[in-house]
Design a protein around this nucleic acid. Sequence first.
DNA 1: AAAACGGGGTA
DNA 2: TACCCAGTTTT
Length: 341
Amino acid sequence: MHLIAKPLLKWFDQFGRHSLPWQASKNSPINPYFVWLSEIMLQQTQVTTVIGYFNNFIRHFPDLTALANADEDAVLAQWAGLGYYARARNLRKCAKIVVTQYQGEFPKEIKAMIALPGIGESTAGAILSISFGQNHAILDGNVKRVLARYHQVKGHYGQSTTLKDLWHLARQYTPDTRNADYTQAIMDLGATLCTRSKPDCANCPLAAHCQAKKHGTQSEYPNLKPKKIKPMRETAMLIYRNKSGGVYLEKRPEKGIWGGLWSLVECENDAKIIAKMIAEFDTSAHIQQKLPMIKHSFTHFHLMISPIIVACTNTSKSFQSIAELKVGLPAPVKKILAQLG
DNA sequence: AAAACGGGGTA
DNA sequence: TACCCAGTTTT
């Protein structure tokens, strides 16, 4: 078994990312709140995108206490566009727990860390390693790709045996010296050289013993998950507008699609049903304009949205000014509202 | 159009 | 324990 830590750390010292906003610097020691926040954001988004969201987020919520005390809608508003909104809700829940049950300091036991909402084994390992210098293995998407190629690991990530194999390898290679740097280094390698397409093997410090490189099978690893055909669904979105241009939005339930976000009223895209919905909302309302259909794709289905502008006079409802919205909106709703001007 | 990303939830 | 689910960006 060839060790990968040594060449990897040597590469990291020269080419790794050392000045990200959540990393320690000369003037600022490591901040576990920043590390945690960045790890959660990085679960779903690339570094370049996360930087902007991260800086914005810490401006609004500079520390754990600020986040714990914030309204859920205020948190979701800053998270909007990142997707997976359950994570933003978990972020706030987690902050509350750390403030009330752990005196505002993250627990330093990995089991306690994993018990916090939104933190699993990999994220817990990364936070404890980077924040407190503890020795833990991590297995994020970058590490999975590096190890799957390095050992030509068979099977896709959806299979428990594959994940077991990858965790085994991850633990095996994780060093007990410079663990924090190693954690950052292997993520950096996956993010910058060992990329999904066109890996830069010529500059890779691990190329000498990489099985995929040796056999020219880089594009076959990691093995892809067998794909499923996504069903198509359809909905009408009613854009209720009052005379001053305000729109009527509803907060969606916590569970399911766009949980906790504010969205337009939806109904079946059928003239009779739409007419009924509108009449129930406001007896004097009428359809003003039908906008072009928008297609939005999710992991499990495609959604065809027919946006319909409805002019309203009912003043008993609460309309919001589009320009001053301070709530999280689903991406297609944001798109529709942007068209209204 | 397809793939990815880690954790939570459910059967 | 083994799936199933979620939203957006990137390729």
